[in-house]
C-alpha cells in the first residue's frame, strides 16, 4: 500500500516542526534511517527522540553545517539516499516596507540553503556510487506561491519560485550528466504549520469560514505533505525528476 522507503538514509532539514517534523516521523515510522536537522538545536532533539534518529543543529546557510549533517549520515549509516531541503521562514510584509536585510535573510535560507544542500548531497551521492551512475532523490519544499501570489508575501514567493525552478534546472542537469539523482519540488498549499499559524488569528485554522477558498475545504496537515515527500523519495517515483508536485486541496485552481 505505502510507497517503500525502508532503510533509505534520509536527511530532513527544518525538521523541528511542521512539514519537516512530520516527514521525519513518517519516514522513521516506515523504516527509513533519518537524520533530522534544524536551526533550533534544542527542539530538534525532541523530534529525534520520537523518531529514535539522529538530531542535529543545522543552519542551512552555513556550508560547514551542511558538511556536518552529511558527515553524520555517512558516519552513522554509510551513505545518503535522500535529501529533503525543507527549512524555511516566512515574512508577511508589503514590498514597500520590506527591508533589504530581511529580504536577503529570507532568500538566503530558502535559495542558498537549497543550493548548498543540492551541491553537497550530489557530491556525496556521486562519491558513494564509486564510478557507477549515482542514485538518490532530492526534494525541495517550495510552495504553491512559486506559481501564484497573495498580497504581502512577495519575498517568500520569489524565494519559493527560485526553489521550484532550481529543482527543474538541476533535475535536467543531473539526468543529462548521466546521474540517476532525481530532483523534484513539492509545492504545498496552506498547511497547518507554525509558520502559517503564526500569521493567522487564533482559532482561524479550524474555522471552516477561513477555508472557503480551498476546494477541499480544510487546512492541509503536515502529514499530507510528508506522504507526498515519501512518494518522491521512494523508488516508485523513479521516473519523476524536474517536476513540481502541487498538494494544495485545489487552492491554486481558481
Amino acid at each position: 500500500m505505502t510507497f517503500d522507503v525502508k532503510d533509505k538514509v534520509v536527511l530532513v532539514t527544518g525538521a523541528a516542526s511542521g512539514i519537516g517534523a512530520a516527514t521525519a516521523r513518517l519516514a522513521a515510522a516506515r523504516g527509513a534511517k533519518v537524520i533530522a536537522t534544524d536551526v533550533d538545536g534544542e527542539r530538534i532533539q525532541g523530534v529525534a527522540a520520537d523518531c529514535q534518529c539522529i538530531g542535529l543543529k543545522h543552519d542551512v546557510t552555513s556550508p560547514e553545517d551542511w558538511d556536518n549533517a552529511i558527515a553524520a549520515a555517512v558516519h552513522h549509516h554509510g551513505r545518503l539516499d535522500a535529501l529533503v531541503s525543507n527549512a524555511g521562514i516566512v515574512n508577511y510584509e508589503p514590498i514597500i516596507d520590506l527591508d533589504l536585510a530581511r529580504f536577503r535573510t529570507l532568500t538566503q535560507v530558502h535559495v542558498e540553503g537549497s543550493f548548498l544542500g543540492v551541491q553537497k548531497a550530489v557530491a556525496q551521492m556521486r562519491a558513494q556510487a564509486r564510478g557507477a551512475p549515482a542514485t538518490g532523490s532530492i526534494v525541495l519544499t517550495a510552495s504553491v506561491m512559486a506559481n501564484c501570489a497573495a498580497p504581502g508575501i512577495s519575498a517568500y514567493a520569489v524565494a519559493k519560485a527560485a526553489m521550484a525552478n532550481m529543482a527543474r534546472a538541476v533535475g535536467v542537469e543531473l539526468g543529462r550528466k548521466g546521474d540517476m539523482i532525481r530532483v523534484n519540488a513539492l509545492c504545498p498549499g496552506p498547511t497547518r504549520t507554525p509558520l502559517l499559524e503564526g500569521a493567522m488569528p487564533p482559532g482561524a485554522m479550524d474555522d471552516p469560514a477561513h477555508w472557503t477558498d480551498v476546494p477541499l475545504g480544510v487546512p492541509q496537515e503536515p502529514e499530507d505533505m510528508a506522504e507526498s515527500i515519501l512518494f518522491l523519495i521512494s523508488e516508485e517515483s523513479s521516473f519523476m525528476t524536474a517536476t513540481q508536485m502541487v498538494v494544495d486541496g485545489g487552492w491554486s485552481l481558481t
Binding site: 477541499l216 507526498s228 521516473f239 519523476m240 508536485m245
Partner: peptide, 20 residues
C-alpha cells in the same frame, strides 16, 4: 489516501523530458 489533499493537479511523470 496518501494523496488525500491532492486535487486539480497535472502530475507529470516524464523522466524530465518536458523540463528542458
Amino acid at each position: 489516501s496518501a494523496s488525500r489533499m491532492v486535487t486539480g493537479t497535472a502530475m507529470l511523470v516524464d523522466g524530465g523530458r518536458g523540463a528542458d
